[in-house]
Computed example of a mutant assay.
Amino acid sequence: MATSSSSKGWLKNLSTYASRIYFFLIIFQIPLFRVPCRAGMCTTPIHVTSSQLIASEIFPVAVVKALLFPGAVINGIVKNMTVPRWDNVLNIYNLTDVKEASAVTDLQRLEVLSGSYFSVAGAVIGILKPGRMSMFGTLLIIWGLVKEGILGKPVNTGPAKTVFVYPTMFIAMVCAFSSVKYDVKKIVRAAPARSIAKPLQSSSKSKLK
């Protein structure tokens, strides 16, 4: 009985656990893909989003730095056991000159750009309340990568800019789908109940007549 109740509790909180894992994948900037962007080559949704935010000046630079800093700290510790400085965050991600970079690269990959926006927003919002934004963003990214990788649109200019998908993308996809909370009780209640008793009653009355 204890095992069954614990398994039911785990399944009930599956969306919460999946949202947390997805949050860590996005915020700590675990490489999911590799695509050309304004900053050169981007490997995470946050990198794609930050390059566009800096170029368009939608948010203050401090907000973009706050978005990048957790992943920069993790990457710095893992690679060379150092913690990067706050003032050097944009240099690490090659975001100092993105305003002068051509916007053609982003326009060619609108699905990846839009999906990165939704993935980052869904990861942050999902910590408070799991929803469908992460799933929608991940699907957009996957479609953009598939369109370029399989259909060959747009055409790559060299091997250094070849689009690549890391195995961690599958983990992100599973977490994004699992973060959606499905209420089975509401689905059952919303389903219309079919009446079986009325036809039986009418047939029994016809026999009596």
Results as ranks from 00 to 15, higher is better:
residue 171 I to W: 14
residue 26 I to H: 02
residue 95 L to S: 00
residue 144 G to A: 00
residue 28 F to C: 10
residue 19 S to D: 01
residue 141 I to P: 00
residue 16 T to P: 00
residue 156 N to V: 14
residue 126 G to M: 02
residue 186 K to H: 08
residue 35 V to F: 07
residue 123 A to Q: 07
residue 79 K to M: 11
residue 8 K to C: 03
residue 154 P to H: 08
residue 46 I to A: 11
residue 88 N to Q: 09
residue 170 F to D: 02
residue 11 L to K: 09
residue 114 S to L: 15
residue 190 A to T: 08
residue 67 L to E: 05
residue 208 L to Q: 09
residue 34 R to N: 09
residue 133 M to Y: 07
residue 99 K to I: 10
residue 169 M to I: 05
residue 82 T to K: 14
residue 102 S to H: 13
residue 110 L to S: 10
residue 162 T to G: 01
residue 40 G to P: 04
residue 27 I to S: 01
residue 127 I to F: 12
residue 71 G to C: 04
residue 170 F to H: 07
residue 8 K to N: 11
residue 180 V to N: 04
residue 102 S to V: 06
residue 153 K to V: 15
residue 135 M to N: 02
residue 37 C to E: 03
residue 69 F to D: 03
residue 36 P to G: 03
residue 43 T to R: 10
residue 102 S to W: 12
residue 3 T to H: 15
residue 160 A to I: 11
residue 51 S to Y: 03
residue 1 M to P: 05
residue 158 G to L: 04
residue 189 R to Y: 12
residue 168 T to H: 10
residue 104 V to F: 10
residue 7 S to H: 12
residue 49 T to Y: 13
residue 123 A to E: 02
residue 139 L to P: 01
residue 23 F to A: 06
residue 193 A to K: 13
residue 91 N to I: 05
residue 104 V to A: 09
residue 148 E to F: 04
residue 140 L to K: 05
residue 58 I to Y: 14
residue 16 T to G: 11
residue 94 N to P: 03
residue 41 M to N: 08
residue 53 L to K: 01
residue 74 I to G: 02
residue 134 S to M: 12
residue 140 L to M: 14
residue 19 S to P: 03
residue 5 S to Q: 10
residue 24 F to S: 05
residue 190 A to E: 14
residue 166 Y to A: 11
residue 176 A to N: 02
residue 179 S to L: 01
residue 92 I to W: 04
residue 42 C to A: 15
residue 132 R to Q: 05
residue 4 S to D: 11
residue 207 K to R: 09
residue 145 L to M: 13
residue 112 V to N: 04
residue 76 G to Q: 05
residue 139 L to M: 08
residue 66 A to K: 08
residue 54 I to P: 01
residue 96 T to K: 06
residue 37 C to W: 14
residue 47 H to G: 07
residue 68 L to G: 04
residue 36 P to E: 05
residue 184 V to A: 12
residue 187 I to H: 08
residue 98 V to N: 02
residue 103 A to P: 05
residue 29 Q to I: 03
residue 208 L to R: 07
residue 109 R to C: 01
residue 10 W to N: 04
residue 95 L to A: 00
residue 6 S to F: 10
residue 91 N to K: 13
residue 52 Q to E: 10
residue 199 P to E: 07
residue 28 F to W: 11
residue 171 I to T: 11
residue 64 V to Y: 08
residue 69 F to I: 04
residue 159 P to K: 09
residue 82 T to S: 11
residue 86 W to K: 02
residue 156 N to S: 12
residue 161 K to D: 15
residue 176 A to H: 00
residue 104 V to E: 13
residue 126 G to S: 06
residue 72 A to R: 02
residue 195 S to V: 13
residue 162 T to I: 09
residue 46 I to F: 09
residue 119 S to Y: 06
residue 158 G to H: 11
residue 67 L to W: 12
residue 163 V to S: 10
residue 148 E to C: 06
residue 138 T to K: 01
residue 89 V to K: 00
residue 144 G to Q: 01
residue 12 K to C: 02
residue 106 D to N: 13
residue 50 S to T: 07
residue 183 D to N: 14
residue 61 V to F: 08
residue 199 P to M: 04
residue 28 F to Y: 12
residue 122 G to A: 06
residue 152 G to E: 07
residue 128 L to A: 12
residue 158 G to S: 15
residue 203 S to H: 13
residue 115 G to I: 06
residue 204 S to T: 14
residue 154 P to A: 08
residue 67 L to R: 03
residue 87 D to C: 01
residue 1 M to T: 09
residue 9 G to V: 02
residue 40 G to E: 10
residue 22 Y to K: 10
